[in-house]
């Protein structure tokens, strides 16, 4: 039920993000979702792409430090309180969110949010039990 995210180390200087998107585009890889966490001197780029292994190879060939990370794609009802209900469930079960970001595309009428939990498996089990839809990797890569 997990989705593989590609994480890339970036120095905080102009042009590095553009360079990543350029090398991926040149290899015909589509970026489905993207988020950057940064500090004053470095950033971590998190990407959901349509071809994880190819993206890893292309990035390494271009001297980027990259790794694969498991994240969870959660369908969030596009109604008021949709996200807060999910966060409440997680808090109730003492599951920490390391980070989260929204997916650009939508699945039917729902938004998709990518979560990185301290315990992904526990989060998946808990959310599924509460009737929340977790999207499979294949589905997410091809949206």
């Amino acid at each position: 039920m997990k989705v593989q995210q590609v994480s890339v180390f970036l120095e905080n200087k102009s042009g590095r993000l553009a360079e990543v998107t350029r090398v991926l585009a040149r290899a015909g890889i589509n970026i489905r979702a993207l988020c950057i966490a940064d500090t004053s001197d470095f950033g971590i780029l998190r990407l959901i792409v349509n071809d994880v292994d190819k993206a890893m190879t292309v990035l390494k060939d271009n001297d980027f430090t990259a790794s694969k990370t498991d994240v969870v794609a959660v369908e969030v009802p596009d109604t008021p309180g949709g996200l807060s209900r999910i966060l409440d469930i997680l808090e109730h079960h003492a599951i920490n969110v390391e980070y989260m970001y929204a997916f650009v595309e939508r699945s039917s009428d729902n938004a998709i949010i990518m979560f990185r939990f301290d315990d992904n498996d526990k989060a998946i089990a808990t959310l599924s039990a509460a009737g929340i839809t977790i999207l499979k990797g294949e589905k997410v890569y091809s949206i």
Binding site: Q5, S7, F9, D38, F42, I44, T65, A66, S67, Y99
Partner: peptide
């Protein structure tokens, strides 16, 4: 230099 062995997807680990 950050290589794959020390890299993490979490900011706090790199910090």
């Amino acid at each position: 230099e950050v290589n794959e062995k020390v890299f993490s997807d979490e900011v706090k680990k790199l910090e």
